[in-house]
Structure formats: C-alpha cells, structure tokens
C-alpha cells in the first residue's frame, strides 16, 4: 500500500517537473519572439523618422521627381498608421515603403550635387544601415518564430502548449517582390 502511494507521488512529481521544464522552455521562446518583434519595431520606427529628413534634404536638389517623393511620403504615412497591426499586415505596408524608397534612391544617381552633399551622405549611411537592420531583425525574428512554432507543435511540448494556450507566432513575410532584398542604396539600378 505505501509503495503504491510512493510510486504515484513519484510519477506526479516527475510529471510536474517535465511540465515545468517544457513550459519554461516555451515561455523563453515566446519571449524571444516578442523581443525580436520589438527589435523590428524599433528599426521600422527609425526608418519612419528618417524619411521626412531625407525628403527635406533631397527636395531642393530634385526638381523633377515630385511624384517619386510624394510616393515615399504617402507610403510612409500608410506604414505609420499600420504600426500597431499584426506582422502580416505590417510586412505588406512596410514592403511598399521599401520599394518607394528604392525608386527614390535609384533616381539620386542623376543628381551629382546631391551625392556630394555631406548631409545626404550621412543620411544615406543611416538609411542603408536601417534597411540592413530591418532585414537582419526580420531574419532573426523569423528564425525565432520558426523555433517557437516547432516547439508548440512537437510532442510532448505541444500538449503543454495547448493546455496553457500558447498560440503559434506569425512570420514577418515579405509580400512585395522588391522587398525580398534590403533596399540597396545603390545608385545604378
């Protein structure tokens, strides 16, 4: 009789420990996804902040590119409004912004004065880097989501996940073809 009690207690304790380990593993992965998302968010905000500055610097030099400039400003405003949306929706509007920016930077090539402007050069480095940071943070975010989702779907942690309500994460997929690459701040496109 007491032996059976001990066995039951033992099994319960072992199960509790397994549950605890799996649960903590899931929480850790979910937090990593959250942090990775925050990182993307920071970089996207940074890009939104850089754009008015860029448009201002470029405006004086580019007399005949009104449409290109307006497209960038418009895409930025749309992206700004969607800044609390989910990963899928944001990826779409940010993708539009990226292609608008790429078109703008492509025409810079025609303005040698602009390319000699110190202010523009500094902005260009910031923009290149922000685009890189966006794609690197997206890269890390998607890797984190993949690992987290795998955990929520694999035995035995999927049991823990469904019991405690872990939902699979959403990938930050690029929908616009031009956005598959970080915008190359290259002037010969």
């Amino acid at each position: 009789m007491p032996i059976a009690v001990y066995v039951i207690i033992g099994v319960v304790v072992v199960l509790a420990i397994v549950f605890w380990v799996l649960y903590n593993g899931l929480v850790r992965l979910r937090n990593q996804v959250k942090n990775a998302w925050a990182q993307i968010d920071v970089q996207l905000k940074r890009r939104h902040d850089l754009i008015p500055n860029l448009v201002e610097t470029v405006k004086g030099y580019m007399k005949f590119e009104r449409e290109t400039l307006e497209a960038v400003t418009k895409a930025r405003n749309i992206a700004l409004q969607a800044s609390s949306a989910g990963a899928g929706e944001r990826a779409k509007v940010e993708g539009e912004l990226s292609s608008a920016l790429a078109r703008l930077l492509a025409v810079v090539e025609r303005y040698p004065d602009l390319k000699a402007n110190q202010n523009f050069l500094a902005l260009q480095e910031e923009l290149t880097s922000t685009e890189n940071k966006i794609s690197f943070s997206r890269q890390f975010y998607n890797d984190s989501v993949l690992r987290y989702n795998n955990q929520t779907q694999m035995v035995p942690s999927n049991i823990v996940a469904s019991m405690t309500g872990f939902k699979p994460g959403e990938f930050f997929e690029v929908t616009v073809a031009a956005e598959r690459e970080p915008v190359k701040v290259s002037f010969t496109q």
């Binding site: 990593q32 970089q43 480095e125 910031e126 290149t128 880097s129 940071k133 690197f136 890269q139 890390f140």
Partner: peptide
Amino acid sequence: HPRLYNVVEEMKIASG
C-alpha cells in the same frame, strides 16, 4: 564612426 557602429549593431541584431 557611424559606419562601424552601424555594422556592429546590424550584426548584434542578426545574431540576437
């Protein structure tokens, strides 16, 4: 040195 700083930050992000 903005370029160096940016590149390090990019890799910090990429590596998590």
